[in-house]
């Protein structure tokens, strides 16, 4: 999950691996110990996204490699799918991932990301329009 979120935000496998390491250590040293597994997962999602945001501000960010070389996707057409996703603004990419892949509700996403539920709905609607062909083929919206 951490790696997938990092890939949505950074699109660079090496950077995503760095994020995995950072989040792993943050879980050990900073995660409050009163959380149940669901709350820990929500905490991990937030921390991963925040670390991806601050990653871009580091001046020594390494050169980007082509996503084609490293993603090892199962089928060639999947690279085209990720290309479309990566054209979205980061906020929309994260919301699409949490909604369609992790199956969180709009309300849950708003709580995880600490943003207004209406904002989540707006981002989701915009992203859906742009990704209509890859989100509806073989499935349906769940609300």
């Amino acid at each position: 999950m951490i790696y997938r979120i990092a890939m949505h935000n950074l699109s660079n496998p090496s950077d995503a691996e760095d994020i995995v390491q950072e989040v792993s250590l943050a879980l050990l040293t900073k995660c409050p110990d009163d959380k149940d597994d669901i709350a820990v997962k929500h905490w991990l999602i937030r921390v991963t996204i925040n670390k991806c945001k601050s990653f871009h501000r580091q001046f020594w960010q390494r050169k980007r490699e082509s996503i084609d070389d490293y993603l090892h996707l199962e089928a060639p057409h999947q690279r085209g799918v990720m290309d479309e996703v990566l054209e979205l603004p980061k906020k929309e990419r994260n919301i699409i991932y949490l909604y369609y892949y992790e199956r969180y509700s709009i309300r849950d996403i708003a709580e995880i990301l600490h943003i207004n539920a209406n904002t989540v709905s707006s981002h989701l609607q915009r992203a859906r329009k742009k990704l209509k062909s890859i989100l509806t083929e073989g499935g349906t919206y769940h609300d």
Binding site: I2, Y3, R4, M7, P13, A16, E17, V20, Q21, S24, L25, L28, L71, H72, L73, E74, A75, H77, Q78, V81, M82, V85, I96, Y97, Y100, Y101, R103, L131, S133, I134, L135, T136, E137, G138, G139, T140, H142
Partner: peptide, 25 residues
């Protein structure tokens, strides 16, 4: 939900070396 997006995401995996390094940490 099964669609081209989720199938694509499903196929993204962290390299085993990354997982091992995280667990070693």
């Amino acid at each position: 939900i099964n669609n081209r997006y989720t199938e694509t995401v499903e196929s993204i995996h962290a390299p085993e070396s990354t997982v091992k390094a995280a667990l070693d940490s």
